[in-house]
Write a protein that binds this DNA or RNA. Structure first.
Lengths: 343, 343
DNA sequence: CTTGGAACTGGAAGCGTTTCCAGTCGCTTC
DNA sequence: GAAGCGACTGGAAACGCTTCCAGTTCCAAG
């Protein structure tokens, strides 16, 4: 019976077997100072031999910290959110933190989280992915001493990492304008869970058109939730327009892909007949030859993670919101407008 | 100073303030028996007033369990994996377990996880999402008393939930055969991280063709990693075939979408010129009118979670692998073959 | 009026660490 | 050669809870 049964082996046992005191054993294992190299080696050896590992519960109880971070994520199955989490996870686990996942579906789940989490005192910090935290909730966490960071959302009053929605939108719309389009529609996407929030991607549309001297036609703006099917439906409405657009700015790739399906079903070829641009550079966007504005969600996760570590570790003062760059990726779904048949 | 500072309030304090012993206070808070209703109410009241919550570290140390489950996920940003995790999360958190996320990128990360996890004694169970655990690793966990469950992978020797790849593949291939196709290609997808594993989706192809009396043409089978770009490249190779296929069975929707892009670029219309079928029913598959075999990864996550709870809670003996159904979803990318121009 | 037992209660003994404190020990420094 | 200092060590005291054990109390049964 080498080590067949996973019987309890405690620090005390290890200390005894290594012929040292528990204090020394603890120091040796936790890589602390004031342990003779030989002693440390001996302790580590014994621990190794017995597959000993410190009890995280006991360690944390004694040490007084939790070492846990909560990730609050609304739509994990979506590329954007999953990518942000990937980035966060890599950084946070590297710092030896436990990464607790909280998938919150709808808005009620979300409130639930903020209600219950503190009622368990379970984490040192909370990272919200891709949505806004209400001020009341933020304050609640703050008074509880829980740090908060946002990744991939919109600009916020607390530390956060995100793209500049205005710049990204300008990149998309300006691209259409530079191609020569004048009748440019917008498929405005809203978060069905936070419908009251104005889209941060819309103002750039009006600004760009205004600066280009193009008249705004409100009937070319269609608002819907930000899913692919919604995009398809919105595009359908635009096709019924008496003077349909020659180009479409979609708030996201998913919406854009939905629009493309509608175009194809109507016998129109994206790029040739109607230009479509999205935002995200979803991996599948390339498979549809969709022109888009690329953002890197994993990077946003990484940066948010690092920001959080700074706040937890080095007593760095909570940093300000931070922006990561976006980049226009031109593919086949955009082209100069076709000469109009009728005028 | 109502409760301005989040100062330490311990069970002892609560007990004193409620005028009871710590034992009673503990029982009252943990919903245990043998507490007079009035007493319990009083304790809860006091706790509530002071925003008191039990320290999970201390509680677990005393109680002796960890209440933690690790989710090991390779590609979080992909729809399939994210969905499985969503399902798992909802079930596991419902049981008041901490869900620890472990994103493992490549195969080395994977080994790393199995090396280090036990070296921290941090979890009661491990759920692996969408990949195979090597036998040695499984045994390692077993001897450590860590339960293991697989969700969304292939069939395994340990408890798991997944679709029947053979059935799903038959649904796809049979569909093509029923439409009248005879030159049916297969875009075989392999996991680049586990390239040695034979695809469980391929045998059905040979079986179905064999049963339909169609000769197998090995040159119609192309193997590549399971990404969209890989699918596009593979399709490109097929287009160079002297006697190209009239239909394509892709192992996944992503591969299928890649194939579709290649077809379109070659001036071929999916469905009309070449039929394409995938597996998954990725949300964006509908946006490309892709015929596919639907699976429900979130459900797989839910079932795997429930299975795990049974193993942890009720001492249910470890259950056997479990299969969830799949369903053919016919869309525009498949149709009967066009009459051949030349024969 | 006993007596037995069920329902409740208080307190002490852990749970397995970390960390502080008081020493040893072996050298350097006057 | 004594004093002083730094490196190292052992052990006890937390850390905040759960749970066991030994009572109380109160009431129904005898």
């Amino acid at each position: 019976m080498d080590d067949a049964s996973p019987t309890k082996v405690t620090l005390v046992d290890i200390a005894r077997m290594a012929g040292v005191g528990v204090g020394t054993a603890s120091r040796a294992l936790s890589n602390a100072k004031n342990v003779a190299p030989a002693t440390r080696a001996r302790v580590l050896r014994v621990a190794e031999d017995h597959h000993y590992v410190v009890s995280p519960e006991a360690s944390r109880l004694a040490r007084g910290n939790t070492g846990r971070v909560a990730l609050v994520v609304p739509h994990l199955s979506r590329w954007f959110f999953g990518s942000v989490v990937e980035g966060l996870d890599s950084v946070l686990r590297g710092a030896d933190l436990d990464v607790l996942l909280y998938h919150v579906g709808g808005v009620s789940d979300r409130h639930d989280f903020f209600d219950k989490l503190p009622a368990r005192r379970k984490v040192d910090a909370v990272v919200v992915v891709g949505f806004q935290v209400e001020e009341a909730e933020r304050i609640r966490l703050e008074t509880l001493g829980v740090q908060i960071v946002a990744a991939g959302g919109q600009t916020a009053t607390y530390p956060s990492v995100h793209i500049d929605d205005h710049v990204a939108s300008r990149q998309a719309v300006d691209h259409l304008i530079h191609l020569g389009h004048e009748r440019i529609a917008m498929l405005e996407a809203i978060d069905p869970d936070q419908p009251h929030l104005p889209s941060t991607r819309s103002p750039a549309y009006y600004e760009a058109l205004g600066q280009a001297g193009i008249d705004i036609d409100p009937t070319l703006v269609v608002t819907a939730p930000w899913g692919g099917e919604d995009g398809a439906a919105s595009m359908g409405r635009l096709l019924g327009h008496p003077d349909p657009p020659t180009a479409v700015f979609a708030h996201s790739d998913e919406v854009a892909l939905g629009a493309i399906r509608t175009l194809r079903r109507a016998g129109l070829e994206p790029g040739r007949d109607v230009s479509v641009v999205g935002i995200d550079d979803h991996p599948l966007a390339a498979l549809s030859d969709l022109t888009t504005v690329r953002q890197d969600p994993a990077q946003q996760g990484v940066l948010a993670g690092q920001m959080l570590l700074g706040m937890l570790d080095g007593r760095t003062p909570a940093e300000k919101p931070m922006t990561v760059p976006t980049e226009l990726v031109v593919r086949g779904s955009t082209a100069p407008p076709r000469p109009r048949r009728t005028r």
